[in-house]
Amino acid sequence: MPDFLTAEFWQEYGTLLGQATIETLVMVASSTVIAYAVGILLAVVLKLTESGGLKPQPVLNAVLGWVVNMGRSLPFIILLIILIPFTRMIAGTIVGIRGAIVPLAVCAIPFVARMVESSFSEVRPGCIEAAQAFGASTMQIVFRVFLPESLPSLIRGAAITCITLVGYAAMAGAVGAGGLGDVAIRYGYYRYQGGVMFASIVVLIIVVQLIQSLFDLVARRIDKR
């Protein structure tokens, strides 16, 4: 019987894994919130300035689109290193949960921007035209049409973002960020304790499943289409 199924194993490592799970969730949740705060803003600008949008600005749109793509093309592990000075400036440290939240959020911003932009694109142009016809200003259209009409899609996108960040948070664990990835690497890899690695993977799988189910449930509840 694998050792992580025994009572002794959980007596010894239960607290460690529980603590690491909480750390992972904190990292994912905080970086998701920050990434959405900035990402939605970028998505609004991208959507409004696109050709045929409400405020076409081809140059701004192209430059911003290029910056977002560039952000998305950087591998997370490299971003983690490039951002060290920035992380130290913002969080005051580059290790632990605090040190991981900054690169995680920065990495997720362009991802979120594209995700939200594509949710906005699902809003029927006819609905936007109707809002215009009733005299809605651009900002009113953003807050009263784009955001509420695409909300179910935004929530489904948020599930994908969170789950992607669970993976990235594990990677950040490799450079001392804490969380389940950190536990898996320190105990499982460096100390040859396969059971701990396996257990943390199982917890990760459960975390991912729960995130997906929860977001799906909410999205289904609120979608009136």
């Binding site: 029927r124 006819g126 609905c127 035209e129 109707a130 809002a131 215009q132 016809a133 009733f134 005299g135 809605a136 009113q140 009263r144 049409v145 509420p148 009409e149 909300l151 179910p152 609120i222 979608d223 009136k224 289409r225």
Partner: peptide, 29 residues
């Protein structure tokens, strides 16, 4: 524009709003 009403072939109602809230939209604006 708020003085000119408009109706469309595909209705263009807001899918996430109730009937009442759809009618309220131009007033909210």
């Amino acid at each position: 524009r708020s003085r000119i009403g408009m109706i469309f072939q595909d209705f263009n109602l807001f899918t996430q709003r109730t009937v009442l809230k759809n009618v309220l939209f131009p007033l909210e604006i």
